[in-house]
Design a protein around this nucleic acid. Sequence first.
DNA 1: TTATATACTACTTAATTGATAGATTAAATT
DNA 2: AATTTAATCTATCAATTAAGTAGTATATAA
Lengths: 138, 138
Amino acid sequence: MRISTRSRYGMRLMLALGINENKKPVFLKDIAQSEGISEKYLSQIVIPLKARGVISSFRGAHGGYLLGKPASQIRLRDIIEPLEGDFCLVDCVKSSDICDKWEECATRDIWNEMSSLLLNYMDEFTLEDLIKKHRFKH
Amino acid sequence: MRISTRSRYGMRLMLALGINENKKPVFLKDIAQSEGISEKYLSQIVIPLKARGVISSFRGAHGGYLLGKPASQIRLRDIIEPLEGDFCLVDCVKSSDICDKWEECATRDIWNEMSSLLLNYMDEFTLEDLIKKHRFKH
DNA sequence: TTATATACTACTTAATTGATAGATTAAATT
DNA sequence: AATTTAATCTATCAATTAAGTAGTATATAA
């Protein structure tokens, strides 16, 4: 069970935008190059993040990307969820129509609790925390 | 990011073996039928669980399967890990040769911590706990 | 109006998932 | 000893998903 590269690249992208001291928008080309990621692939990843509001963009010459809101208001969940699709370990956590043993199933509780562990973490941890972690390492 | 059906089926299989009051081995056929899972598919899932020691088997007529050890000594990790492969959200959590920014990468810490949350849960929670949960519901 | 960079759409390739099918082996029963 | 039973082994397959490419359209600054 692995996180998709979309989420991993997306996280690195958001960190790159977050540590951008400049108020000038950053070119995707530059992030792609410095992170060693395909620019075309990154340009697809950006879309759902923009839809979620954590990224804002500017088209045309001198365009680029900025954080859509302060890093302290961006939860990891806001980054991972749009890229990973709705985040739960099994489908029956979300809807009960899939399985006729939904009510009585003890194993569902397990997957449910494990999903919650991750969701809680992603809700509490913000991009600002990630940036601090990064600065501490550098 | 979903748990594979292998793990889900494996968990239900282990619970079925766990609530088997009889000391007689259980036929895979019967579990497959009552759980609505392909017997052939289940027979593949059983192999890595047996290798891990959480299942013991008996061939031939009146054969079948039993728990390999007391349910209290079977951690969820012993069920999920053999079926899911080594359990971590990104490869760079395990080995550092994949990425040349291993040391300095702050995002890796995120995936690392999320992986640990799940592993800790799976280490603490046992099949016995799952069985209790099941009995409570029935 | 030209250069630049984002936005959109379609396609491709490889890997993984979730099975199915059939032959083989071991043990108990007849 | 022959037969039945059920686990074990090996191979294959179809569908889906993941990961990435390619090309066009659009908006904006100079």
